[in-house]
Nucleic acid binder design. Structure first.
Lengths: 345, 345
DNA sequence: TTGTAGGCGTTATCAG
DNA sequence: CTGATAACGCCTACAA
């Protein structure tokens, strides 16, 4: 296999009897070059198979036009839609997207943030790992003017762009929805409490109970480690075998919500009449399970698009932008069979 | 916000009274530098907050240590797992991963391949868009010694690394499984026929029928455009309303397989006894639907890992490697409720 | 084991 | 409107 030598702006310059600077300017639509020359040069570039070298351009201009993404794992519906939104938006603006997964490990998050930094990304979009508490690894981005957008799983102790949903209200509404369906004893499947999303959903749950005069029982609040299907099944079994089992579950994600439905059915507990369930995220599985799982919408793709837009806007500005803008997106309760009772008790 | 000046190897050199080249070598573990000096320099680098500049290193050494990924869309279970496998493997080797989605548009695939090329990726992993027929946009990679690994949706008319499953055998086995369950009239939900994966699954289906003495009926082979849930529902409805409806469906993906089950249930057709269904991919929804969907495993993450490994291996070789290696992974029939009949008819 | 010097491909400044 | 020149940060012969 012969390796061709790459065509550079020097080759174009020689070929067309222009200086490299003129070629460069023409290729970048610099206004000082006549339309005619630009056209000529671009056509020649095309014909000679010229392709710009982003490494060189990036080194020189100190901007890589690349957005770095730091998430826990890609193969989950919410995350892959988030990235999809980021990529589509970035691509339209001519930006590339560099991804990295922490697999929810703090140390990996540090390593990956360094790797992305080393590529001199124009901005970083982060959804924190489950383990992350200390934010030190993000400081060098701030110090060097690289904007960071935290999305969904955001820190409370770090000032930067944030794109989130109102988890508190969502948790409150989900719980209220169950109450309206006649539930009196509502359990909650809670996620790691140092992650804002889970903490706030839980707060919303607790407040909804309180404000509707329902008692809060510790035994009904199950703290999950990973919110996995198996964990959900075990928790549901335990709850349903109590002498006084709950009549409703608000699960912090759909995976455990679906597991609750399937476990209840297996145990002969009627959903929604004996046990109403609502999840979170609107993952594909939630509309497949029967009865279908009520849930809370989570605008993943839109959150990705907005996050990318923040980076793009920031890059377009020359002045020092205010980095602390927080975008809060709305969510909706999607009521389905798992919670819609025909007769309210 | 003050923007700090970056620390370079020159700064380290000045600080430590070494030449930049020594610093560079030490940082890269060059063997000619003593352990002691390496340690000294690395510690100073750490302390001074030095971070290498990949753009500069890449420009100079003509290798970016970046793998480009070109897929149709990220937010599908198979694809996100594929990317997850790529990323984990690449990361371990110190490579970054650049992603781009074509959204199944030929023109986007061209544009994205150019964008990735411009970033001087070390290798490209591609799963073709639905529309792609011409392969011209991949030639410059070959000409410049950038390895391409086609994965899953691969071309037949382009010689390069390929990582695939044996779609023919999988299609054959899936159909045979239905035959063994007693199905006599088996329909097939087929995907776009210029994409190898769908064509081969269909061939396997046809041969299985033939070899088991079952008639092939054109009306039972439904050609899908996108294999979406809605398309699946419509196709199932139409089939089940025939005067002589099929008693089995082999769907080329799980989405339409699940839609078939749900549609059949709605129409009062018993699954699996009146209609047995098998899908493809083992997406999460397949084990949630009831009866759960029999399917064919698709080792997405593993395919990603192997694809990445091909690139890494190729990069490690100095000689001109043979680019035509094809890796074929095995699949398994996962028999679940949607096809397991208690009484074989 | 370490240093010197040149260049990777591009862009920006300055001059014309 | 165009050209010469330097510089971005790093790597690597070649020299010492």
């Amino acid at each position: 296999m012969k390796i061709k030598k790459e065509v550079t702006i020097y080759d174009l310059a020689k070929e067309l009897n222009y200086s490299p600077s003129t070629i460069s300017r023409a290729l970048n639509n610099h206004k000082s070059i006549s339309k005619k020359t630009v056209k000529l040069i671009k056509e020649a570039a095309e014909e000679m198979g010229y392709r710009p070298n982003n490494l060189a351009a990036g080194l020189r201009s100190n901007k890589s036009n690349t957005i770095g993404v730091l998430i826990s794992r890609i193969n989950r519906p919410f995350v892959s839609s988030l990235i999809s939104g980021i990529e589509n938006t970035a691509r339209k603006a001519g930006y590339n997207v560099l991804i990295s997964q922490s697999n929810d490990k703090y140390q990996s998050e540090i390593n990956n943030s360094n790797a992305l930094y080393d590529s001199r990304i124009s901005g970083l979009i982060v959804s924190l790992s489950m383990e992350t508490i200390d934010m030190g690894h993000f400081e060098k981005f701030m110090e060097n003017g690289i904007p960071i957008v935290f999305v969904d799983r955001v820190p409370s102790n770090f000032n930067s762009y944030k794109v989130v949903i109102d988890n508190y209200t969502a948790g409150y509404s989900a719980t209220k929805h169950l109450i309206e369906q006649g539930c009196k004893r509502i359990a909650h499947f809670a996620g790691a409490k140092h992650r804002n999303v889970y903490l706030e959903r839980k707060k919303g749950y607790l407040d909804a109970l309180r404000e509707h005069g329902l008692p809060i029982e510790d035994k009904l609040v199950v703290n999950f480690k990973t919110l996995s299907f198996d964990e959900g099944t075990k928790a549901t079994e335990k709850l349903l075998k109590m002498t006084n089992p709950p009549d409703g579950i608000f699960a912090a994600n759909d995976t455990t919500g679906v597991s609750a439905i399937m476990c209840a059915k297996k145990l002969g507990v009627k959903v929604p009449d004996q046990l109403a369930v609502i999840g979170f995220n609107d993952d594909p599985i939630s509309s497949i399970v029967q009865p279908s799982l009520s849930t809370v919408s989570h605008p993943a793709s839109k959150m990705g698009a907005i996050s990318a837009k923040r980076i793009l806007e920031h890059s377009a500005q020359s002045y020092d932008a205010d980095l602390s803008e927080i975008t809060v997106l709305g969510t909706e309760i999607i009521a389905r069979g798992s919670s819609l009772r025909t007769v309210k008790s």
